[in-house]
């Protein structure tokens, strides 16, 4: 069943159109990879799914994005509510520099206005850090600033931060691009684990990664969705010539 459905969705930066009439069904409890050469609109695509695109100046979206059948661009829909349901992890980890590790994880809980006591808070912090495969490394330093961690740890901290609020969908925009192979492996494992409870969309430049973690793959080129399908099929037997050229490294 499609958790997210893009219907003739176009995205603009001022006058320039970054995405053109995308139709795409993203299935629930699966990992969908978005691949394509640099500048083809991968980041823009995922940012349209949690209404982050419009936070850029002069940026706007046309067409519909349905989340559980409801248009998130419909009249009266509060983008803040959408972003609480659709979590996001960015390419560059951005923990809040003045907050401790545990406060970074818990920050979204306060936003949601949940009245939690200390015990419940600590429990959620621990669970989220465990899920993000970071707990063992930081459990004795929860009061330290989030920025005192390494880049890979910071990225996992940001994943924990996104998971703490229990989103339904997790968007990951090149989450491993700044990480070493070990941290990357951690995060890939994590993605595979998380997909039983979340719908995940992951942008990646790494074909192997897409093949390893995703169930479905979308290939974008110049703002157009060229091909979408089962990951295995896309990588072994693509229908379109452009897809084949890209995954065999002939361009991009």
């Amino acid at each position: 069943m499609a958790k997210i459905r893009l219907v003739r969705m176009s995205a603009y930066f001022g006058r320039t159109r970054a995405l053109r009439e995308i139709n795409l069904d993203i299935p629930e409890f699966n990992v969908t990879a978005v691949i394509g050469p640099s500048g083809c609109g991968k980041s823009t695509l995922v940012r349209c799914i949690n209404r982050m695109h419009e936070t850029v100046k002069d940026a706007r979206v046309e067409g519909d994005v349905l989340l559980d059948g409801e248009n998130i661009y419909g009249p009266g829909v509060d983008p803040v509510q959408i972003r609480r349901r659709v979590g996001m992890v960015f390419q560059k980890p951005a923990p809040f520099p003045t907050m401790s590790i545990q406060d970074n994880v818990a920050v979204g809980l306060n936003l949601n206005g949940l009245a939690l006591n200390r015990g419940e808070r600590a429990e959620i912090v621990e669970r989220s850090l465990r899920r993000a495969a970071l707990w063992n490394e930081v459990k004795d330093d929860l009061g330290k600033p989030g920025t005192s961690l390494s880049g890979g740890q910071q990225q996992r901290l940001c994943i924990a931060r996104a998971l703490a609020v229990e989103p339904e969908v997790l968007l990951m925009d090149e989450p491993c691009s700044a990480l070493d192979p070990i941290s990357t492996a951690h995060i890939e494992e994590l993605v595979l684990e998380l997909k039983s409870q979340y719908t995940i969309v992951i942008v990646t430049h790494n074909m192997q990664q897409a093949a390893r973690v995703s169930d479905f793959t979308a290939f974008l080129l110049g703002g157009v969705l060229i091909e979408f399908g089962d990951t295995k099929q896309i990588f072994t037997n693509p229908e379109r010539q452009e897809t084949e050229d890209y995954i065999t490294g002939r361009f991009g």
Binding site: T55, R83, F90, K92, F96, A162
Partner: peptide, 14 residues
């Protein structure tokens, strides 16, 4: 840094 603003918005901050 803008990425801090984005991080806050993405968490559902007003």
């Amino acid at each position: 840094p803008d990425n801090l603003r984005e991080a806050a918005f993405a968490l559902g901050a007003t």
